[in-house]
Design a protein around this nucleic acid. Sequence first.
DNA 1: TTGAAAGCGCTAACAC
DNA 2: GTGTTAGCGCTTTCAA
Lengths: 349, 349
Amino acid sequence: MKRTSSTIRDVAAAAGVSVATVSKYMNGVQRFSPAVEARLKAAIEQLGYRSNPLARSMITGETRAIGLAVLDIRNPHFTNIVKGANRVAIEHGYTLLLVDTEENQTRERPLIEALAQRVDGLIVSSRIPDDSVQWMLDLHKPIVLFGSNRHFPIPCVGTDSYLAAYMLTRHLVNQGHRRFAYLGFGQSRWNDERIRGMQSCLAEHGLTAALYEGHTPSPQAGERACSSIMLGPERPDALICYNDLIALGFMKEARALGFALPEDISVAGFDNVPYGEYTSPALTTVDLQSEKLGELAMHKLIDALAGKSDAGYSPLEPRLVARDSTLRRTASSDTAPALTTPTRNGDSR
Amino acid sequence: MKRTSSTIRDVAAAAGVSVATVSKYMNGVQRFSPAVEARLKAAIEQLGYRSNPLARSMITGETRAIGLAVLDIRNPHFTNIVKGANRVAIEHGYTLLLVDTEENQTRERPLIEALAQRVDGLIVSSRIPDDSVQWMLDLHKPIVLFGSNRHFPIPCVGTDSYLAAYMLTRHLVNQGHRRFAYLGFGQSRWNDERIRGMQSCLAEHGLTAALYEGHTPSPQAGERACSSIMLGPERPDALICYNDLIALGFMKEARALGFALPEDISVAGFDNVPYGEYTSPALTTVDLQSEKLGELAMHKLIDALAGKSDAGYSPLEPRLVARDSTLRRTASSDTAPALTTPTRNGDSR
DNA sequence: TTGAAAGCGCTAACAC
DNA sequence: GTGTTAGCGCTTTCAA
């Protein structure tokens, strides 16, 4: 057992060949005479030699690593993205470098810049406005972003939040809900899209929604906002939350306040986090295909690395997941105008 | 905007100094004449120069990166570990390299070996038996393991599972439960400890537990095992699961089977995953301090990197989190012998 | 305080 | 097939 690991020169010496031969052998770029191959194999085995990827990278200019920056690894949406991206990376012989920027706008840029130096390409989830990503392009590394960018031709992936919100709202309208509220997270790039999707559907039925702001994309935001929504003058019969975490927090607090769910209010979110299924009532949500999103982003980046760049927006389709946290309302409790579409129409699942 | 990023030589030329001077300036190792410093600053700014960490690492032998291998990033226990480790790493100027081994015994070793080449040290969570980690030591990198290792003097961190299980069991016994079952995950290094902790407490009260095996540490395992536990001849009044995920899956399926929770059965797990709080009933669990575990592991590794190695086991204290999924049983439904300790005694919280 | 030069471990021409 | 050699971008003596 050696204290410091052996180099290509040690192997060359032990096998009685040149370093170039060892290098070629390690990279499997050509055939060798049986004698040399045997000696090589023996020497490598005996010395426990493993080529130093750093030295290799210096010359080839590629690290075989890909950097992924997420806003908060604890959010299951991002956890799933990491999972998907990681799998594809491994399949293609890449290592994943993860950076959690902790929703911290200040730390974000230096962290990503440092990350960029150690990888062949980047996948970035950030709250940076579309027109402030020039510095990312100056990194001179292939990059894939979450969300579409209207200012630069950057490869992007995302799930259609407008459609997702439209679908969910339509489902709720079909169920007979009339008094809508939306508990959002304004800092997210998706928040506006979701509001528009919801409002567009509501408008078709002559309805509107009260808008609340949650300030963080976490259960705490839902808990905090709960009392003002539930105990205010105009209690909604349906609440759409920016994401499932907010919805989960809201439901917990609503129950603590003595409300019955979903009888007193229907609650829904976005993301289809793995635990929405295990609450009671189980959470109605829209599956944004987080894991697929991670896979897709990684595929796009690996394609870009291979030269086949596709600097467009690749959207994924959302899918409504109707569960028990949203309840069909009876006409008796309905104070709004009648539906123009039949109540049993067009729902997913 | 240059196509390829500039090197130390470009800066040296632009500032009219030698590369050695630029290097020293970048590393802030000495003072400079105002004239040189000004030119340096200007040249670096203008060229957007950033030193190449790979080239630096080749010489210094340190990468300022730390590798973390987890079994499944989707498990909130590991997510929290990553979170804690990442924060400490960033505080100390390190980058985190994450590898998700996907509970795959075959992939694990090559992945970790590849990871080891790119980092200064490793933090590893694995199912490798204590006596099969020699190859990890042969990596010649400082390493921190989760769980104590009885065969080698390796720095380890973990939470006392025996105590955690003992505490939880005691709470359940105090609540009046008498017919215990344990739904485990045999592949985990912690499983046996938890069983021993539970059995040791049960034995003190002349009780025993039926043992079931879940095969995976996921909600699916809980769902799958549910019917045989609930519909078998000897239905328990308390179920302890290997972790919260299994407990969550079990509770969902039990409800689907028509059982009332926690009236028909009390359920508890380990880990205190963030979502156990949001289920209904909220899940009783033992907080294993996952995030602190990640922080502690990273601190230990950074200490080792700094030479102050501490090759012992640093255990964290578990904390019982009593919620509503475990219910105080009345004597009427109790067919087991009476308690030797009062029912209202020694519970945490 | 500054610079010249010798590599770190490896790959990639190019010879043989 | 195999060897020679010139670096990749940087740090680090050692002199000046």
